[in-house]
Nucleic acid binder design. Structure first.
Lengths: 263, 263
DNA sequence: ACGTCGATCTCGAAC
DNA sequence: GTTCGAGGTCGACGT
């Protein structure tokens, strides 16, 4: 890494800040600007934020984040591929980030800059997450007994009309079709309704009895009742067991998912 | 603001960085740490991110964000009210942010620090946003002709079972009940299903004919067909007209929503 | 605490 | 381009 900070200045004059900014934007560097600003957004909605101290982060892909000193979420933002324009007038440094589709603009007006950092960051790190819904699905395909003994998956990612994909379509020991909806977290009513959509869709073409099964670590309150009223079934599937299956089939890279003291 | 940056150091040794960090965490300052790190998350799910240059932002409320040099979203994070612990061992500066409920920990392991900034930021700015779904609802309550002439809202925020709230329940000129579902953006199939849920819920108790109306700026593709098959209606309601109504009733503070050159 | 729903949601995948 | 579903979604609001 060496010295990743190209620029790191405290309380720069606005003109100086603008010069660094222009060069950094042209070079597609990561920019951190901390100072007093107000923010205007116009696009899908409109917003205004009056003066205060904020952190502005501009990334290499042209995405923009404005953070207040508190709160997890950014107060204003712009996704990647923004076009930038800076102006300096009347002691205000204006940064405008424009997105084309949909057309929206984010305008940040700095009246004071506490610090400006410009960085040349290299990040080719690999990000892995466990256990996603997709991994639960893979585990169930590898070992369908996670859901039910004697069940056999019929096709991966089979599509039915506009209703989207069923998570898994299978056949049980008795020859019934089984539509399986998977949730990585406890399933609520919305998951049951989603299952119903898939079941309805498939029922239109199916020539044999059809079962709807919700596979998840648990059920939220209303889900049980709704599930019963629709004659669907619930199968408890713990992410831990899915992980075991994946590991047994060497589908998982992570080494210390359950043993690490980081857990 | 004066000098909001308490600390701003380039390439600090890890021990120095840790000292500043500990003091800043105790003082509840905003912290910006840029450098090479890897990240481990354990909680509702698990994730690992191998080495790379990242931006770490810790806020006054104990929220944490780890940003890669690209992408709008943070790669790892922790919501507010985290507990922190830092350690320095084997040339690695470890920052651990723990959340109690749900129990989850985020561990960031820095091997190099390009810059460390500690800030005392003041932000009492006011954030205003237009036009939200709630504002569209207010506009429709103020001027129901936005949806249909002769319609009269019956009650705000009337509740029905666990199904949640209807956006607006009204009575039309003929005395029918009208359930109105509002969307600020073009409405998709999910909005129609949501409307059905409210209509079904109310139909159980209603003593008179019931209509379901979807009020939004437009319809997505599948929504039209689903709407028709369920015998519901669509009413085009533009956010701009809602804004006009709100402004006419002095319900809006913003001055230049449509006239500003920021638009 | 849990459940529901909106969001400038973002992001990706399929069509 | 559009549509659809996942997300450690988050956050707000209500029970």
């Amino acid at each position: 890494m060496g010295s990743a900070a190209d620029i790191l200045v405290r309380n720069p004059r606005l003109a100086e800040a603008r010069e660094h900014l222009e060069a950094a934007l042209a070079a597609r560097r990561v920019i951190l600007l901390v100072g007093q600003c107000r923010v205007i957004y116009r696009g899908r909605a409109s917003s205004e934020l009056t003066d205060g101290d904020r952190i502005l982060l501009i990334k290499t892909d042209g995405s923009v984040l404005v953070h207040r000193p508190f709160g997890y979420e950014s107060v204003n933002w712009q996704p990647s591929k923004c076009l930038f324009k800076t102006t300096l007038r009347d002691r205000v440094l204006t940064i405008r980030a424009t997105r084309v589709q949909p057309k929206e603009t984010l305008t940040i007006l700095f009246s004071e800059v506490a610090s400006l950092g410009v960085y040349n960051l290299e990040d080719s790190g690999v990000f892995s997450m466990y256990v996603s819904e997709e991994q639960m699905r893979q585990a169930i395909l590898l070992d369908p007994s996670l859901v039910e003994d004697g069940i056999r998956p019929l096709a991966e990612e089979k599509r039915f009309g506009d209703a989207g994909f069923t998570d898994v379509l299978a056949e049980d020991a008795a020859g019934n079709l089984v539509v399986i909806e998977i949730k990585r977290d406890r399933a609520g009513r919305d998951a049951v309704l989603q299952l119903r959509r898939y079941v309805d869709e498939i029922a239109r073409d199916a020539q044999r009895p059809l079962r709807g099964v919700l596979a998840s670590p648990g059920l939220r309150k209303g889900a049980q009742r709704l599930l019963e009223s629709l004659k669907f079934e619930f199968r408890r599937v713990a992410p831990e067991r899915c992980y075991d299956v994946l590991r047994r089939h060497d589908q998982v890279k992570i080494s210390d998912y359950f043993d690490s003291d980081e857990r």
